[in-house]
């Protein structure tokens, strides 16, 4: 029991360590450079806001990408669910919660279509998702005379960019996801498919059913991200020509961090920790006065370095194990 408690505490500390270190690093750096305001008051609120928005997208992408399914259509799902769901909700006179739920239903429907298409046509997911991205983009473009959705001034509806409403939304989603991933058959199947698809299928895991559910979850999460975006800016224009793909660009760093923290904690929590780190970096660089172009370079370099580390981290473990083995052999020989 004590060992289990120790392990839980250790894992919690490791999971929290990275975001806390990054936060403190930028807090110290900005103070050293004489820049005030990082990570407190309104800046902390914008960090939370960015964490929620990027976190939703990273979570959505992670449910498929970690199983080898690169889904290019998630951005178009966000757009369509916001335009269609938002329009339906406003026409029906729903409040903010009703609006998010309507968007989520549309997002899940889009996810269902994506998932079914993937399992039925048996083409690589990159191909099916590119095709669907164009279809969803076009549907969003056809609605509302191609003008997207404009709710500027509807402050009663656009509440999910405000603290703590954004945190409540993320909290509800996280509770559901943690339950699904850790306490249901779907979660066990998902984890087994992620670690070894062939073995999992051989022992009877229904990969197709699991994939469809993952797409549906991703759709709902993208709709939530869309609700946060709409609340922040008040409008969303349709996009065509696969321009919606750009929505997933901010998802990679949180997702990779989430993947590396998954062994210490829940993957969903890891992704949110990653989104928090990314938001701290963005906010910190802004406070330090780094220009947009330099920031773009830094963002790319961080993702690259992290990928290099993740791809090679097993070598460090192997090296450590070999060193231990060698030391043991030497001590045995000396004895």
């Amino acid at each position: 029991m004590q060992a289990r408690l120790r392990r839980v505490i250790r894992n919690t500390l490791i999971t929290l360590a990275a975001p806390v270190i990054v936060y403190l690093l930028f807090f110290g750096l900005t103070r050293l450079m004489g820049k005030q305001g990082f990570g407190i008051g309104p800046d902390l609120r914008v960090i939370i806001q960015n964490t929620v928005y990027s976190g939703f997208i990273a979570l959505a992408v992670s449910y498929n990408l970690t199983s080898g399914r690169f889904d290019f259509s998630v951005g178009s799902v966000l757009i369509l669910s916001v335009i269609l769901g938002g329009t339906l909700a406003t026409q029906a006179g729903f409040g903010p919660v009703g609006m998010v739920l309507t968007m989520a239903v549309v997002g899940m429907a889009c996810g269902l279509v994506s998932g079914l298409l993937y399992v039925l046509v048996k083409l690589p997911p990159m191909i099916t998702s590119l095709g669907l991205a164009m279809v969803f983009e076009s549907l969003g473009f056809m609605l509302n005379s191609s003008k997207g959705i404009r709710l500027i001034g509807r402050f009663d509806l656009l509440i999910f960019a405000q603290f703590p409403n954004n945190l409540y939304l993320l909290g509800v989603a996280l509770v559901i996801l943690i339950y699904l991933l850790n306490f249901t058959q779907f979660g066990y199947n998902t984890n087994s498919l992620r670690t070894g698809q062939k073995n999992a299928v051989d022992v009877g895991v229904n990969e197709k059913k699991n994939a469809v559910i993952c797409y549906v979850i991703a759709g709902a999460l993208m709709a939530c991200a869309g609700a946060v975006y709409l609340s922040q800016y008040g409008y969303l224009a349709p996009q065509t020509g696969l321009a919606s793909i750009s929505f997933i660009m901010g998802a990679f760093l949180p997702m990779f961090i989430g993947g590396s923290l998954a062994k210490y904690s829940d993957r969903n929590i890891g992704v949110i920790a990653g989104a928090f780190i990314q938001a701290c970096i963005s906010s910190g660089l802004v406070k330090l006065g780094v220009s947009s172009s330099v920031k773009t370079i830094i963002d790319g370099a961080i993702v690259l370095l992290f990928l290099v580390y993740v791809s090679n981290s097993h070598k460090l473990i192997l090296k450590k194990l070999q060193a231990q083995k060698k030391a043991l052999a030497l001590s045995d020989a000396q004895a």
Partner: peptide
């Protein structure tokens, strides 16, 4: 808009 830096 749409980037974390812009929001910050």
């Amino acid at each position: 808009p749409g980037t974390e830096a812009f929001a910050a």
